[in-house]
């Protein structure tokens, strides 16, 4: 409908030109609904045949899309669009209305406040009820943390075991090898998980007091990141670094798992190791500090 004047438009209406575009839209809407109908039938057949995810998705698309497109086109091209205009009503109530409201409110308040002792007692009673019922509800959700965050299952003499519970010998790991270990009896534990590394370099810088913690070049660190607690399972063997997959904290294995990059604030705690007479790896003691991310009570 280009380059038209109102007069021309009237003329078009008379000779039925406008009508033509209208019935074209009707055809589009009809085809759209028909497509939806066919897709719905198809969906029924697919479903009856046992279902197939991609066919279901595609047929749902056509069944729903045909309906949606048809209804929108109908509502847009075959129904008067206006524009219509509507006056907004004032949201605010008349002053008199508010005045009466406030008076009514005050009437009630004065009637209640007359018995001020009862008001106070009621307040205290409701508060007491709230505290008494709410407190056990929260309390019964879980135990108090107490020493929970300070201890793991590692003890003096705990044997290192794999996730399947089998004990680890000092000869099991090749130089350059890595293994996730647990204290015996707690295989698979989330808190005690420890990463056992046998680095292929020998320039280990031992922290003071940890001279005996790494027999035969073995090193064991808590696998729980000190940042957000993810398992620090990514061992880069050449660079001797442990990487946390969640937020990319990087720990230097050779210098006591100090954080060298990323958001982790503290080194991974180190597990002191020893090798018994049969060649099994044991823990000399448990971790000497809480493992994992920080918390308020931790100094």
């Amino acid at each position: 409908m280009s380059s038209s004047t109102p007069e021309l438009e009237q003329e078009k209406v008379k000779v039925g030109l406008v009508k033509t575009s209208e019935s074209r839209f009707e055809k589009v809407v009809a085809v759209s609904f028909a497509l939806s109908l066919l897709a719905s039938i198809g969906l029924g057949i697919v479903y009856w045949q046992g279902g197939q995810t991609q066919a279901e998705g595609a047929l749902l698309f056509f069944a729903l899309g045909g309906l949606g497109f048809g209804i929108v086109a109908w509502g847009k091209y075959l129904v008067p669009q206006g524009p219509y205009v509507q006056e907004r009503e004032e949201l605010k109530s008349p002053e008199s209305e508010r005045a009466v409201l406030i008076e009514s409110l005050e009437r009630g308040v004065t009637q209640i406040e007359r018995r001020s002792f009862l008001v106070k007692l009621l307040g205290v009673s409701i508060a007491a009820f709230g505290v008494i019922t709410l407190f056990p509800f929260i309390r019964s959700l879980g135990p108090q943390p107490k020493k929970m965050l300070y201890v793991t299952n590692w003890k003096k003499g705990s044997a290192l075991v794999r996730s399947d519970g089998s004990k680890v010998r000092a000869s099991d790991l090749e130089v350059g090898g890595v293994l996730t270990v647990f204290p015996e009896g707690h295989a698979g534990g989330a808190i005690s998980q420890t990463i056992l590394i046998r680095p292929s370099f020998e320039d280990i810088v031992t922290k003071p007091g940890r001279e005996t913690w790494g027999p035969q070049g073995y090193l064991a660190y808590s696998k729980v990141c000190t940042h957000a607690g993810c398992p620090v399972g990514l061992y880069q063997e050449l660079t001797q670094q442990l990487l946390c997959p969640c937020h990319q904290s990087l720990f230097d294995v050779m210098t006591g798992a100090n954080p060298v990059f990323g958001p982790a604030p503290r080194p991974l705690p180190q597990l002191p190791l020893e090798i018994d007479s049969q060649g099994f790896l044991l823990a000399q003691a448990g971790y000497d500090e809480p493992i994992g991310p920080g918390f308020w009570e931790r100094a």
């Binding site: 056509f62 729903l64 949606g68 497109f69 209804i71 929108v72 109908w74 847009k76």
Partner: peptide, 12 residues
């Protein structure tokens, strides 16, 4: 009609 149809389009 437009809004109702749009629901079906969203679902589609």
């Amino acid at each position: 009609m437009q809004a109702g149809g749009f629901f079906f389009l969203t679902a589609a």
